[in-house]
Design a protein around this nucleic acid. Structure first.
Length: 724
DNA sequence: ATAGGGTTAG
């Protein structure tokens, strides 16, 4: 597959009529290669920790006080991004060679301008008015209404066609059929009548219906028939084939048919071209998309809003903020006005890139430009504000939605509920939930119930959560794995272990497949349970993830060697979803600490660090070193703090240099229900009699000066010496 | 749905 893609992207293999064959000529994309270069840098910048390659994304959601317009915020971009950059070591030797001579420009006026796409869009023949339209529409309706399984009935209706099936009449009916099966039957009937030659448009219309039914194989068969029968395949044919392949996830087929266009000397127009851009974008082949894009630009193509929506979506999926900025810049410099879809795509992309402030600016820019948001716009924005914990903005937007009468749909209702769950807005959620129950078309479904379970679960409202659980089975709404997790978390915290076991069993018996999050949740319950409860929860976990239970047993055995723990733990992490790895490690550390297996806890924390589960745990600036424990569980935070004190102690003893300030950050706990870590950390600091004090001006920060730490170490050494 | 390309939920 990879070889095939790179072959397609090598212009020299494209046998296009206007392409220069002289290899000494510079390739056409030289003219814009410096633009492409920006990209290769921004998209290859992500680093992966060793071995397990967990791609922990850090959500940067720091709130900006000022709110300049988006174009103002982008201004510095044009000064920084356009500067020449050093060659990127990640690029292929071929790319590097090209980049080393950025001055090379396509200058050969005697040859035609090399082109990868036709700047003229394929023209469509216009329909002439068909006086028989009423009769034929009625006929098509009969065909549509006939029993889909009864082919004989269909044939019987065909015989009663009210007007002769000439070219125009046949096209009209063919265009009116809904199911692909009937379209195909009608198409074949017309063919067997043999009244007129079957032109490209008949194939195209039939293929469109087949694409709607995702019948790629039928489409490909028809395309091959066209080739056999000498019927021309045009841009409409190809774009239909390519997009059908794409929707069926047959990306190699999409590329194969795209290649064939050039091979047969047909130049794609911008519709086909942007369809192919989307194929590569769906394959997450960012480099290839940009290469195609740049070559299209070099051919004189002025991309339209749809092409930019494709790019925006791709960069959003990659969480690539530089890419998103590039799309905005490029549209601005080409004078392409974003439409609603482009705005929606870019807003979503901003969310995925962790830029809520820029999403907000972009939204205001959109509204100011006179474009009204639709359900998708609002869904994207509500989700962003919820994830960023921007309660004020979320509620303001909600008010605006109501006062402006902006459109709502089911997904938006559920997104509002999820946002309430993210922000802990219990009353607002309850009001909305009641509205939904009273509505006709937006009755709560499993998503809605999950959001409510999430709210009650994280709020510790176990009775309301259980009431919802009963209500769900009464209303025939199925619990899903996330709702189950919320409920179990809540029951665990309330120590209602028998209810927990019951919910777990009903869920698994009902077909819920426990995922890593649910296992992590059970694991956390294990960490703070005692007595017989531990075994009850472990029995659930055994059903969901037996390896994990075996690992806990291994940790508990005193004779277990570190090497053994290391090996087993690596295996477990490798088989765990990336975003569940840190919670697993946190819980396992807690389990060890609650069983006085402190040495094990330190071993686990060490391995978690090695595998990149705790990036930025320790940061060193010239004047301050900081231990960042905000993503750690209580036990893991204690373990990390002990580890750090040990290191500091050794450094003092060896008289190594310390910075002026030492600090430990537990975070302020932006979530309404997450205040536990700071308190637990404070009492642990006290228990250890460590010299750290709660900072006066920054919440969730514990600070000590170099002198504090030094004298603390020395006094401890003295007291130890005097007791022995 | 009247021959072709792009966007919404843990």
């Amino acid at each position: 597959m990879a070889a095939k893609l790179s072959a397609v992207l090598d212009v020299h293999q494209w046998n296009t009529p206007s392409y220069p064959t002289d290899k000494k000529q510079p390739p056409p994309y030289f003219t814009r290669i410096s633009t492409h270069k920006r990209f290769t840098i921004s998209c290859t910048s992500s680093k992966s920790p060793p071995k397990l390659s967990p791609n922990n994304k850090t959500e940067s959601s720091s709130r900006k006080r000022k709110n300049p317009s988006l174009s103002d915020q982008l201004k510095p971009l044009s000064t920084t991004i356009l500067a020449d950059q050093p060659p990127n070591p990640h690029q292929s030797p071929q790319q590097q060679k090209l980049l080393s001579k950025p001055k090379s420009i396509w200058v050969n006026p005697t040859k035609p301008k090399p082109s990868v796409l036709s700047l003229q869009r394929q023209k469509r023949s216009s329909y002439s008015y068909n006086p028989q339209i009423r009769d034929l529409k009625l006929f098509a309706k009969k065909l549509n209404d006939s029993d889909p399984l009864d082919e004989a009935a269909f044939q019987a209706i065909l015989a009663e066609i009210p007007h002769p099936p000439n070219r125009e009449n046949a096209l009209l009916v063919l265009n009116s059929l809904r199911s692909w099966e009937k379209t195909l039957l009608f198409f074949n009937w017309i063919r067997t009548l043999n009244l007129f030659p079957i032109e490209t448009i008949f194939y195209n219309v039939t293929m469109k219906s087949l694409r709607y039914g995702r019948q790629f194989q039928h489409i490909e068969n028809l395309a091959n028939e066209m080739i056999e029968n000498g019927v021309e395949l045009d841009n409409i044919t190809y774009s239909t084939i390519i997009t059908c392949a794409k929707r069926c996830n047959l990306f190699d087929k999409a590329v194969e048919w795209f290649e064939r266009m050039y091979r047969t000397g047909l130049m794609p127009d911008e519709v086909t071209y942007s369809a192919v851009l989307d194929v590569y974008a769906k394959l997450r082949k960012v480099e290839e998309v940009m290469s195609l894009y740049e070559r299209g630009r070099a051919s004189g193509w002025k991309p339209d809003a749809i092409a930019f929506a494709v790019l925006g979506k791709m960069f959003g999926e990659a969480g690539d903020y530089d890419g998103i900025r590039y799309v905005l810049e490029e549209m601005k410099s080409l004078g392409v006005q974003p439409n609603l879809v482009v705005y929606n795509t870019l807003l979503e992309a901003m969310g995925k890139a962790g830029k809520p402030g820029l999403a907000r600016s972009l939204f205001e820019e959109m509204v100011d430009s006179g474009i009204d948001p639709d359900e998708k716009t609002l869904t994207a924005l509500i989700k962003i504000y919820g994830k960023a914990r921007w309660a004020k903005d979320a509620l303001e937007l909600w008010d605006r939605m109501k006062s402006n009468g902006w459109p709502m749909d089911f997904i938006l209702y559920n997104s509002l509920l999820s946002m309430c769950a993210d922000l802990g807005l219990e009353e607002e959620a309850e009001g909305l939930f009641e509205n939904m129950k009273g509505s006709e078309y937006c009755k709560p479904d499993s998503w809605s119930y999950t959001a409510m379970l999430n709210i009650y679960g994280s709020g510790g409202n176990v009775d309301k959560a259980m009431k919802l659980f009963e209500e769900m089975s009464e209303n025939g709404v199925e619990l899903n794995v996330m709702g189950c997790t919320c409920l179990i978390q809540c029951l665990g915290r309330a120590k209602r272990i028998d209810d927990l076991v019951r919910v777990f069993q009903i869920s698994v018996d009902g077909g819920i497949k426990p995922d890593d999050r649910l296992c992590g949740c059970l694991l956390s319950v294990v960490s703070y349970c005692d007595g017989e409860d531990v075994n009850k929860v472990l029995a659930c976990l055994l059903r969901a993830n037996p390896t994990l239970v075996a690992f806990i047993k291994l940790l508990e055995k005193e004779e277990t060697h570190f090497e053994n723990v290391k090996e087993e733990f690596k295996g477990i992490l490798s088989n765990t979803a990336v975003d569940a790895r840190r919670p697993f490690c946190n819980c396992l550390i807690d389990i060890c600490r609650n069983r006085d297996l402190h040495e094990r806890a330190h071993e686990l924390l060490y391995m978690g660090t090695v595998y990149g589960l705790y990036p930025g745990l320790h940061t060193k600036a010239a004047e301050e070193w900081r231990l960042n424990v905000r993503s750690l569980s209580v036990g893991a935070a204690h373990t990390a703090f002990e580890e750090w004190l040990g290191t500091l102690t050794k450094m003092v003893q060896r008289q190594e240099a310390l910075p002026e300030l030492l600090s430990a950050s537990t975070g302020a706990g932006t979530h309404k229900y997450s205040q536990g870590l700071g308190n637990a950390f404070a009492s642990h600091v006290e228990k250890l009699a460590a010299p750290f004090r709660i900072s006066d001006n920054k919440a969730g920060l514990f600070v000590a000066t170099r002198e504090d730490v030094t004298s603390w170490v020395q006094s401890r050494a003295t007291s130890l010496a005097s007791t022995t």
